[in-house]
Simulated assay, not measured.
Amino acid sequence: MDQTAAGGGARTDEATERTPVRFDTKIAVLLRDDLEPWQRLNVTAFVVSGLGTAVPEVIGEPYADADGTAYLAMFRQPVLVFEGTKETLSLAHARALSRSLATAVFTSDLFGTGNDRDNRAAVRAVRRDQLDLVGMAVHGPRNAVDKVLKGARMHP
């Protein structure tokens, strides 16, 4: 048992491990509220996949079970999912870009494509303020992400 420097109280490594971890950053997904359930899942999976490549520090260590079977590393922090109107998404998109936050987008056009090349071409064909956004993921400082998501509500 280690003694703490201030206060002389005892503290164990076990107690430290049980202390909740509070991250100074936030990962959030914002979905348009008129999507079908399968679309919500699809969009969420696509937009969060981009964050690990752009912000590698959001990825934790690989997993292993008691038998030593290795599994892929995942995000080291929770992903919060929100929903909002088309207008809420447009505002959040503009706020995220104005704050230079890591942002991934999914537009309605991507439901009609079938591969990465066509997905990128569909986004590239539309000006930023004309994108028909149906979802986005954003990562950054907690307070900045909170401001980006103003007007959105937690996904039910």
Rank of each mutant, 00 (worst) to 15 (best):
M1Y: 04
M1C: 02
Q3C: 04
Q3E: 12
G9P: 03
R11W: 04
E14F: 11
A15S: 08
A15W: 08
E17D: 13
T19D: 08
P20Q: 06
V21S: 02
R22F: 11
F23K: 07
K26P: 01
A28T: 02
A28K: 01
V29A: 00
L30I: 00
L30T: 00
L35W: 00
E36T: 13
Q39V: 06
Q39A: 13
V43P: 02
V48D: 00
V48C: 06
V55E: 15
V58P: 09
I59V: 15
I59N: 14
D67M: 08
G68L: 04
G68I: 03
T69R: 10
T69V: 11
A73P: 08
A73Y: 07
A73M: 07
M74Q: 12
V79Q: 01
V79K: 00
V81I: 07
G84R: 03
E87M: 07
L89H: 06
L89G: 09
L91C: 13
H93G: 08
A96Q: 05
L97K: 15
L97F: 11
L101D: 13
T103C: 10
V105G: 02
F106N: 02
S108V: 02
F111G: 01
T113Y: 05
G114T: 10
N115F: 03
R117K: 13
R117F: 12
R117E: 14
D118M: 05
N119Y: 10
N119A: 14
A121K: 11
R124N: 13
A125H: 10
V126A: 03
V126H: 04
R128Y: 07
D129L: 07
Q130Y: 12
G135A: 01
M136Y: 02
M136V: 01
M136S: 00
A137E: 00
H139Y: 15
D146V: 04
V148G: 11
V148I: 10
L149T: 05
A152L: 06
R153N: 05
M154Y: 11
P156D: 13
